[in-house]
Simulated assay, not measured.
Amino acid sequence: MVKQIRARRTRSRLLDAAAEEFAVHGYAATKLQAVVARTGMTKGALYGHFPSKRHLATALVAESAQQWSRISSTGLERGGTADVILAGLIREIRAQLETNVRFRAALRLAADCELSPSGSPGLFEGIRCELVRSVRRAQEEKGLARSYPAETVAYLILALVYGTSHLPLWETAQGVTVDPDRAWEMLRTALNLG
């Protein structure tokens, strides 16, 4: 029992360290030695849990894909109008990107190279499909951005949400920092999204 607990903790520490590296450097530039250095463990500990960088990355993506599946189904179970459900999904994606390094890393990995268990949709694909469905429902129910294809609106939403998690803060010519929340508010207003 103690060994299992220790093994789970080790695996979790390795996933956290790998997530930090993948989130910053992406798949190609991440070095396993940097992951090991973050944990203070040996390479043997890493390879005891993950035989390769690809296995480590795939584990992060698979975990986040499962998490996204729970998030999207929970939003649908809560019910409400289509625009409220869509806004909730978007808030959840933003929250995950801001607070969950594993999710942020997994989305970066999914953008770099789609890593998903065979037969299941990848993380980006799962998010894309749910956003398109939600936008389409909001268009039908509320007339939300009806003049634009649902796929285009979903793409714009994901580009803004994902992009702002990777951009550094900008300053205007007047020295005011551009607020990502304000950019999101502008898009919500333009789309008539509650």
Rank of each mutant, 00 (worst) to 15 (best):
G194P: 11
R188I: 01
R133Y: 05
H25W: 12
R137E: 05
R108L: 00
E125W: 03
V84K: 11
R102Q: 15
I127H: 07
G80I: 04
R8V: 11
P51S: 02
G88I: 01
M1R: 03
M186A: 14
A105L: 08
K43A: 11
Q139T: 09
M41F: 13
A7S: 07
G194E: 10
S147L: 11
V36E: 06
E141S: 08
N100P: 13
D181C: 08
G79C: 07
A7W: 00
R11W: 00
A159M: 09
F50V: 02
L191N: 10
I127V: 13
R133K: 06
F124L: 13
Y155K: 09
P149V: 06
A23C: 08
V24Q: 15
S134W: 02
Y47M: 11
R6G: 05
V132R: 05
A7I: 03
A62H: 09
L160E: 11
G126C: 02
R136I: 00
L56F: 00
Q66M: 08
E63I: 02
S69E: 14
L115I: 03
V178W: 02
T10G: 01
L158C: 08
Y27L: 07
L60R: 01
L144A: 07
L107K: 02
V2M: 10
V35M: 05
E151L: 12
